[in-house]
Amino acid sequence: MTRTGRPREFDKDKTLARALELFWSRGYGATSIQDLVDVLAVERGSLYGTFGDKRRFYLDAVRLYWDVYERHLTTALDARPLLPALREILTHPARLDEMISDVGTPHGCLVGNTTAELVPHDSEATELVTRSYRRFTEIVSDALRLAQATGEVTENTHPEAQAQLLLYIVQGLSLVSRAGLDRTATLAAIDAALGALRA
């Protein structure tokens, strides 16, 4: 049988995951195609042929980031009691030093970084981050509603509004973490927010 086309010389999923680390540590604008070629050790033509241009490659990386984050978020919030699990989610940006790879240190939330760099000028990026934020509030509000039913979370609050507030907190922390965080003050602020939810 005659083989057509050139065999792919790299694992697409592993390459995308590696690119995600690079984009996350450097940002979209500061990552060049040559950076990707050098770090991923993949020929430029192969990258273009598999992922398209840098923008398409970046948005695929953001989608991967969110898929992983959403699975982590859902699993974490299935734990009981809920409030300690929420605390773990909210303190994530304060623990960036635990996430250093040989590519670099991630800076904040990649979805939040995409908002800062590409929204609202890029409609596809805008749709992607809007959907991600909506999913965060849906997942968290569902968890809060269940915790109200068990008596862990006060009934004197609206789960949807509180979930939206927690989104603002986690995104705000992600942004501020890029300039460095005072861990003690950060944890105190998170505990104050969660204290208002306690029954």
Rank of each mutant, 00 (worst) to 15 (best):
A30Y: 13
H92Y: 14
Y65P: 08
Y65C: 01
A149L: 14
L110V: 05
Y133I: 06
S32P: 07
Q148T: 05
V37D: 08
Y28C: 06
T74P: 08
E88V: 03
S123G: 10
T137C: 02
A116G: 09
D60V: 00
G104V: 14
S46K: 09
P120R: 05
D53G: 13
H92I: 11
G29K: 09
H121P: 05
V153E: 05
N156M: 13
P106N: 02
V42P: 06
E88M: 13
G151H: 04
G52D: 06
G52P: 02
G49I: 14
F51G: 03
R145M: 10
C109A: 05
D38P: 05
F51N: 00
A116R: 11
A61L: 06
L73Y: 01
F57R: 01
E70K: 15
E155T: 15
L86I: 06
T126N: 14
L86H: 12
N156V: 08
L118P: 00
V140Y: 01
L82E: 03
T154R: 13
S32N: 09
L36S: 03
A76R: 13
R95C: 09
A147H: 07
R56G: 11
L40S: 09
S141D: 02
V103Y: 15
L36Y: 04
N156H: 12
V103T: 10
M99W: 14
R135I: 04
S123T: 15
E70Y: 15
S46M: 15
E88C: 00
R56T: 13
R87W: 06
A61N: 02
A143F: 07
A125W: 00
S123M: 12
G29A: 11
G112K: 03
E155I: 01
H107I: 15
Y69Q: 14
R55G: 02
P93K: 03
V37T: 12
T50D: 01
N113R: 15
V62S: 03
V39D: 09
G45Y: 02
W66Q: 12
T91R: 14
F57N: 02
V111N: 01
L144K: 03
L110N: 07
L59P: 00
G104W: 09
T91F: 12
R135W: 05
C109Y: 08
R131W: 08
E127V: 04
T137I: 04
S132P: 04
Y65K: 08
L82V: 01
D38M: 01
F136P: 04
K54R: 12
A30M: 11
L36C: 10
D38R: 10
R71W: 02
D35F: 05
A94K: 05
S101R: 07
G52S: 12
D35H: 05
E98K: 14
R134C: 00
T105A: 09
E98I: 01
R131P: 02
T105F: 00
E117G: 03
V153L: 03
L118A: 03
A147N: 08
Y69T: 10
R71K: 10
E155C: 11
L77A: 06
D35M: 06
V119M: 09
H72K: 13
R71M: 07
R56Q: 14
G104Y: 07
R63A: 13
A149R: 09
D67V: 12
G151R: 13
T105E: 05
T115Q: 09
A94D: 05
A79S: 15
D35I: 04
A61H: 11
R71I: 00
H107S: 14
S123R: 13
P93C: 06
G29V: 00
